[in-house]
Simulated assay, not measured.
Amino acid sequence: MTSVKIPAGSATLNGELIMPPDAAGIVLFAHGSGSSRFSPRNTYVANVLQQHGIATLLFDLLTRAEDQDYDARFDIELLTERLLAATRWLQNNPATKSLKYGYFGASTGAAAALQAAAAMGDAIAAVVSRGGRPDLAGKSALSQVIAPTLLIVGSEDYGVIELNEQAYALLKCEKKLTLIAGATHLFEEPGTLEQAAKHAADWFSCYLS
Rank of each mutant, 00 (worst) to 15 (best):
R64I: 14
A125P: 01
L58E: 09
V128L: 01
D75R: 09
A85G: 02
T80A: 08
G159W: 13
F104V: 01
T63S: 08
E77M: 02
G154E: 12
A55W: 00
H52G: 00
E77W: 00
I161C: 03
L61G: 00
A46R: 05
A85P: 05
P94L: 11
D71R: 15
K172P: 03
E162V: 03
A116D: 13
W89T: 11
A65C: 00
K139S: 12
A55K: 09
Y44E: 13
Y101Q: 12
P148D: 09
T149F: 05
S129G: 10
D69F: 01
A118S: 14
A72L: 12
Q50M: 12
G159R: 13
K100Y: 04
A137W: 02
V45D: 00
Q51D: 15
E77F: 04
V145Q: 06
T108P: 01
T178I: 14
D71T: 14
P134D: 13
A95M: 11
T96A: 02
T96K: 01
A118N: 10
A119H: 09
G138E: 12
H185F: 11
G131I: 07
L62D: 07
S107A: 10
A111F: 08
I152P: 02
A116W: 13
S143W: 04
V153P: 04
T63R: 02
Q166T: 11
T108Y: 09
T63I: 05
F104C: 00
A116Y: 12
L61F: 03
K175R: 14
Q166S: 11
Y103M: 02
A125N: 10
I152S: 03
G138C: 08
L62V: 01
Q144M: 14
L84C: 01
L79Q: 12
K97A: 02
E81M: 06
L49S: 03
E81D: 15
L79V: 03
K97S: 10
Q91I: 02
F74P: 04
V153W: 00
